[in-house]
Simulated assay, not measured.
Amino acid sequence: MTFATWWRGDSLPCLSPLPIFSAHLSTDTQLVARLSNHSPQAIATRFQMGNRCYLAFMGEVPVAYGWMATQQGSISALQLSFAIPSGNSYLYNFQTFPEWRGRGIYPHLLQDIIHQERFVQRFWIGYLPDNEASGRGIRKAGFHMVSDLVVSGDRVAGITLFESSERAQASADVFHLPVIAGT
Score class of each variant (00 low, 15 high):
3 F>V: 14
8 R>L: 06
10 D>F: 14
12 L>F: 00
13 P>T: 06
14 C>Q: 12
15 L>F: 09
15 L>S: 11
16 S>Q: 12
16 S>K: 12
17 P>S: 10
21 F>P: 01
26 S>E: 11
27 T>H: 12
28 D>K: 09
30 Q>N: 15
31 L>C: 11
31 L>A: 13
31 L>Q: 14
32 V>I: 15
35 L>P: 01
36 S>F: 09
39 S>I: 13
39 S>R: 10
40 P>S: 14
42 A>F: 04
42 A>Y: 00
43 I>P: 01
44 A>E: 12
44 A>L: 01
47 F>P: 04
48 Q>H: 10
49 M>Y: 12
49 M>W: 12
52 R>A: 10
52 R>Q: 15
54 Y>M: 10
55 L>W: 05
59 G>V: 05
60 E>F: 05
60 E>S: 13
60 E>K: 15
60 E>L: 12
68 M>W: 02
70 T>W: 00
70 T>G: 03
72 Q>F: 03
73 G>P: 01
73 G>T: 07
74 S>W: 01
75 I>A: 02
75 I>H: 00
76 S>E: 11
79 Q>A: 15
81 S>R: 10
84 I>Y: 00
87 G>A: 11
87 G>Y: 07
89 S>Y: 00
90 Y>L: 00
90 Y>M: 01
94 F>Y: 14
94 F>A: 09
96 T>D: 02
96 T>N: 02
98 P>S: 12
99 E>F: 11
100 W>G: 07
102 G>C: 03
102 G>R: 05
103 R>V: 07
103 R>M: 15
104 G>E: 06
105 I>C: 09
108 H>V: 00
108 H>Y: 01
111 Q>F: 02
113 I>T: 07
113 I>D: 03
113 I>Y: 03
114 I>K: 06
114 I>Q: 08
115 H>Q: 13
115 H>M: 11
117 E>C: 12
117 E>L: 09
118 R>Y: 01
119 F>K: 07
121 Q>H: 13
121 Q>N: 14
122 R>C: 11
123 F>C: 04
123 F>G: 05
126 G>C: 02
126 G>M: 06
126 G>A: 13
126 G>V: 01
128 L>H: 15
129 P>I: 13
131 N>K: 11
132 E>T: 08
132 E>P: 00
134 S>D: 02
134 S>F: 03
134 S>Q: 04
135 G>K: 08
136 R>D: 10
136 R>S: 09
136 R>E: 13
138 I>A: 10
140 K>L: 11
143 F>M: 06
143 F>D: 02
147 S>N: 00
149 L>C: 10
149 L>K: 08
149 L>P: 06
153 G>R: 09
154 D>I: 14
155 R>A: 09
155 R>I: 00
159 I>D: 02
160 T>I: 15
161 L>I: 04
161 L>M: 08
162 F>D: 08
163 E>N: 07
166 E>V: 15
168 A>Q: 04
169 Q>P: 00
170 A>R: 06
170 A>D: 13
171 S>V: 04
171 S>L: 04
172 A>N: 09
173 D>F: 03
173 D>M: 06
174 V>K: 04
174 V>W: 02
177 L>S: 05
177 L>R: 11
177 L>Q: 05
177 L>H: 09
180 I>E: 06
183 T>Q: 01
